[in-house]
Nucleic acid binder design. Structure first.
Lengths: 136, 136
DNA sequence: GCTTGACATTCGAGCGGCTCTAACGTTTAG
DNA sequence: CTAAACGTTAGAGCCGCTCGAATGTCAAGC
């Protein structure tokens, strides 16, 4: 699998993936004769984990460390510090989900105001130029 | 109310608040004789809105624009572009909340492995039958 | 063959949004 | 009166991408 396909599958960009590689978060993948990167399913798996950890706002370096140990089956060697980090981040995540629920209510209110006082009868066209196919 | 108290109330930092002010997102607040910033409830309200919009990942500049119009009661003058932005961001938010739920399962699994002292089970074998949209 | 277009490569610069430091002034509790 | 806790400024630094330029590779169509 090449970088573009991988990026799309994981909802990121080729640039970002190369950036992870440069930073040493991702092992250098195999290359085909044309020097294109060729990603294995294992590579994809690691990147998937990394992205998950990043979504918890775990810094790149520590995400890499965590991913590496666990992939090597050496979870028992993960430092207490890192364990703690994961735990606090998970707690934070839960809090954030709650916050977002609240936020959405406020934004719904705001959006309501916009619609009410807004464009007379011509309702806002939601997908105007933006055409994001979530395929869900 | 001074900057520290405001920051704490809104879960941010004095630095960030001053940064917003420098960038023109926040009007320069009143100053007391000692040149300390004194925030009114209106100031706090605006900042609260701004922070909400930022949590939707709406760029600073556009968040400011939106906040300004709405505060001035000129919601009807908000551009369609901005309306659309708010809407797409709200949709994105909903998606993200779902993603986070899924993410949390994966991270719970990972955390479980860590706690188990490294029982080498395969990473992230969580099925992604995580597709019901629970009410927010 | 040639051309066009989508995809890949490298390197490096640029950017958004904070975050922190330094050097300093003010307020308040003991 | 002193020490801490808070405030002020200007500016540098940082993280995590993001983008651009110059170039290479490959498939499809004329």
């Amino acid at each position: 699998m090449r970088i573009g396909a991988l990026a799309e599958q994981l909802g990121t960009t080729p640039h970002a993936i190369r950036f992870y590689e440069r930073r040493g978060l991702l092992p250098a993948p195999a290359r085909s004769d044309n020097r294109y990167r060729e990603y294995s399913e294992a590579d994809a798996e690691r990147l998937r984990l990394l992205i998950g950890l990043r979504q918890l706002d775990i810094p790149l370096e520590q995400a890499a460390e965590l991913a590496t140990m666990c992939a090597a089956g050496r979870c028992d060697e993960v430092s207490d510090e890192l364990r703690g980090l994961l735990t606090t981040k998970r707690v934070e995540l839960a809090r954030r989900v709650d916050e977002m629920r609240f936020l959405d209510r406020r934004m719904a209110h705001l959006a309501g105001q916009l619609e009410a006082g807004g464009t007379p009868r011509t309702l806002i066209n939601l997908r105007k130029e933006e055409e994001h196919a979530p395929a869900m």
